[in-house]
Design a protein around this nucleic acid. Structure first.
Lengths: 297, 297
DNA sequence: CCGAGGCATAATGAATCCTTATGGACACGC
DNA sequence: GCGTGTCCATAAGGATTCATTATGCCTCGG
């Protein structure tokens, strides 16, 4: 049996019209008429009652309709499963760059999981600042870039990738731990920040500006280049810092760092995916993006 | 999608052989090869691994196989339900006539089985000679007739119904039992025959004529009107007779009558179905004919 | 009563399926 | 190692099926 005949039949029953069914199916009306006629001949009974202009299924037609729908649903599921299989053939090398924020924890773990899922794929992640990543993508030295700040650049396109929540990290047992503090309280506390140009720093500067403050209004004792350095300093009790929650998930679980928040500030940022304008995507890149959206979405 | 391709695929997986699958499906081996090839092309992946002589499903093929089986099962259920629709509605009365030959055993048992299959149908069988049956069908007093000889009659049409094999029946322990006898041997033996006009008799006369003999050349001791009478006489040891094998199946099984054949004679006849010309068939009659062909075919 | 819309049919061309014939590859036995 | 038999794939050709356009007939609404 050809499931297209069943599809034609179902369309006729649903639309109560051969002509409308034909339109939906993308064929001409006589084609549908012949399909139904052929089906009726094969099954040995009338499936559709054509009384004047009315098109109604007969009793047999109603029974067939239910079964036909199940057949078509099963066929669709079958095709869908096979389409899903096709991805399993992924292989090749992916060159990706990230700024230090996303390049620190989230992305490496994601890429590791992706590689495990697709053993024939090889991934190379290089970490540098946002500007350099964007430039490398523009020059097509990297296929993908993951950065924490969108810049204007005509040779690349940015698209939202995932949302990164920024929290106030403090040493365990700290007075701030587990609660929301005021700006005045924050002002009296030693603060460690990332170096100039870091995305998280940008986010915090924007948030403070929104409440009429500047970063220099805080007791910024240390500026560190690497997120890992900042994390270690906080864990060691040298101060508090604003950091991506995702970067300290393990510490939060282990209790070696505590989390708090500041009244009136909700710092977060959209991590962006960068691609060269007009460049065709490889299947591996496509698969990675889909994988990431599934994992991070 | 054509479920025949799925059926071909499933057959290949199950038999692990294109050739065996082709045999099962009733097509040639290249046809199956092309079906599978076409399916693989459509679904975009290899479904069967042909390593040398081994035919194994791939991983994708195994997945498809499970779904395909469900599709085919659903199709069968769908067809079965529709077939059930057609049969379940049968009701009414069927008037049928038969000559004494087919009217003796074959047809009565067939009609009983048919009625059991369709409890709402009522069947009336009347037995008389061929000519009378034909006349009654022509006058539309009977819807169907089953006779052993076709006659010219412009108001009816004959069509082959089933083939009736005629054998030489003899008493158990008889010298003829279980072997092929010569015409000379037959000539020396008392023979019992059916009355003039009986179809079997006609068949035997034709066969003898073919070897340059006539019925009167045999030692015809008795002519009996009813087939049942002839059967009883042979079982009682009064002689041998030519009779439809189907009429003595039970006796052959019970050993109360034995079977033999005559060298050079292969008597058989085509039992014919008689219908009035141009008369529309009822669904019950149609169903009976289909049922009979299935049973007797 | 007439016009518009919809289904069925005829004729024709394209696509698909099946056949036979045959070639190549592989396994098995000698 | 070679020959034979079996099995799958391919080519070519014919048959069948599906889709098209054109058109006729029927029904319904205005």
């Amino acid at each position: 049996m050809d499931t297209r005949q069943l599809a034609a039949f179902c369309a006729v029953v649903e639309r109560k019209s051969f002509s409308h069914a034909a339109e939906q199916l993308g064929v001409t009306q006589p084609a549908v008429s012949l399909q139904i006629r052929s089906l009726e001949k094969r099954l040995g009974q009338q499936l559709v009652d054509r009384s004047g202009r009315r098109v109604e299924p007969t009793e047999a037609g109603r029974r067939l309709y239910r079964n036909a729908q199940r057949m078509l649903a099963l066929e669709e599921q079958l095709l869908g499963e096979l389409a899903g299989d096709a991805e399993g053939a992924l292989s090749g090398r992916l060159e990706i760059g990230a700024s230090t924020g996303p390049g620190g924890t989230v992305l490496p773990l994601l890429l590791c999981a992706f590689q495990r899922r697709h053993p024939d794929v090889r991934v190379a992640l290089s970490v540098s600042d946002t500007q350099r990543v964007v430039d490398q993508v523009a020059r097509r030295e990297l296929e993908l870039g993951v950065v924490g700040a969108a810049r204007r650049h005509r040779a690349v396109v940015f698209e939202p990738f995932f949302r990164d929540e920024v929290v106030l990290a403090c040493p365990p047992g700290h007075a701030f731990a587990g609660r929301t503090v005021t700006l005045d309280e924050l002002r009296e506390e030693p603060v460690i920040v990332m170096q100039e140009g870091a995305g998280v720093r940008q986010v915090i500067e924007d948030e403070l500006r929104g409440v009429g403050m500047r970063l220099r209004d805080l007791d910024v004792r240390v500026e560190l280049g690497l997120q890992e350095s900042v994390r270690s300093a906080v864990a060691a009790g040298y101060g508090v810092t604003f950091i991506s929650r995702s970067a300290i998930e393990a510490d939060l679980s282990a209790g070696t760092i505590a989390e708090s928040s500041v009244e009136g500030l909700e710092p977060a940022r959209e991590i962006s995916l960068v691609r060269a304008s007009g460049r065709a995507e490889t299947r591996v890149a496509q698969a990675l993006v889909a994988f990431a959206r599934e994992r991070l979405g």
